[in-house]
């Protein structure tokens, strides 16, 4: 157990060094992730012409949501962990990892964490700049910013996204190329996760259905919790659903790993 605890910071440190070696890549990624916010701003400004509210949102409220979404994305979205895991399985690179006295899930968890830390460092200034520019143009609704409800939801989102990524990547034990599956899930995350628009703009039955799926707890729920637009009861139900989905995917990943290892054939010396 103590050797395990010693190993994790080392894996984290190696992961961090690897990520920061490509800091330009990260900085570009952070800069480009701000472009959809700019597009949303321009588009919604046109939608709000002559209207005070759309659904229950004012223009400022909606832009606050998109800006907070940048923070959620920076903290919880995996970078290319899915493709890395898939490559490790497909190209037999699991061999040295299997020999280490470290569970694979924890190993990937430490790398995921290091990736998020590196990205946060790179994204900090661009995200701050976005908030600054937006706040000069519209009155961002940050007064109701709820860190107490937002932080657990943010942590839950990271855990959920990591566990879902792990499940998807582990299907590489059975399929040669899983990139189409990954991109299909991306599209679902974007639509049903509240990345393109806040889910409460959907008609009521669709909104209810979306909240039953895991995707809503990846982006919409943590963003809404941080914006302070959820009642305490809604937050309680949401956090319960979020962690239930995360635990489900972690358990599923465990099963996939066990079954996959039985199928895994390592070639080479």
């Amino acid at each position: 157990m103590s050797s395990l605890l010693c190993a994790l910071p080392t894996v984290f440190s190696i992961g961090l060094q690897r990520q920061l070696a490509y800091r330009w890549n990260y900085l570009l990624r952070a800069l480009f992730s701000a472009v959809p916010l700019l597009v949303s701003w321009v588009f919604w400004e046109a939608v709000f012409q002559g209207k005070e509210t759309v659904g229950r949102y004012t223009l400022a409220g909606l832009l606050t949501y998109y800006a907070v979404l940048l923070v959620v994305e920076a903290v919880s979205s995996p970078a290319d962990d899915d493709f890395q895991i898939s490559r490790e399985i497909r190209e037999g690179m699991l061999n040295p990892i299997l020999l280490r006295p470290l569970p694979y899930g924890l190993y990937r968890g430490a790398l995921f964490l290091s990736g998020r830390c590196a990205y946060l460092v790179a994204a900090f200034i661009p995200v701050l700049l976005c908030f600054f520019i937006l706040s000069r143009v519209v009155h961002l609704e940050l007064a109701s910013f709820d860190i107490l409800h937002g932080l657990p939801a943010l942590f839950g989102s990271a855990l959920l996204q990591f566990s879902l990524t792990l499940c998807l990547s582990l299907t590489s034990f059975w399929f040669l190329d899983i990139s189409s599956l990954i991109f299909l899930v991306y599209s679902l995350e974007f639509l049903a996760g509240g990345h393109v628009f806040p889910l409460d703009l959907l008609p009521a039955p669709l909104f209810t259905a979306a909240r039953l799926l895991p995707f809503a707890y990846e982006y919409w729920f943590p963003a809404a919790a941080l914006c302070g637009t959820l009642s305490h009861r809604e937050w309680q139900i949401g956090i319960g659903m979020q962690f239930a989905w995360a635990i489900f995917f972690l358990f599923l990943a465990h099963l996939l790993w066990k079954a996959g290892l039985r199928k895994y054939t390592a070639a080479g010396g």
């Binding site: 330009w24 890549n25 800069l31 480009f32 472009v35 597009v39 290319d80």
Partner: peptide
């Protein structure tokens, strides 16, 4: 820049 994978994200972002 050595690793430029993020340019693809840039392409998709800008083309919105």
């Amino acid at each position: 820049i050595v690793q430029a994978e993020s340019v693809l994200l840039g392409y998709y972002s800008i083309f919105q």
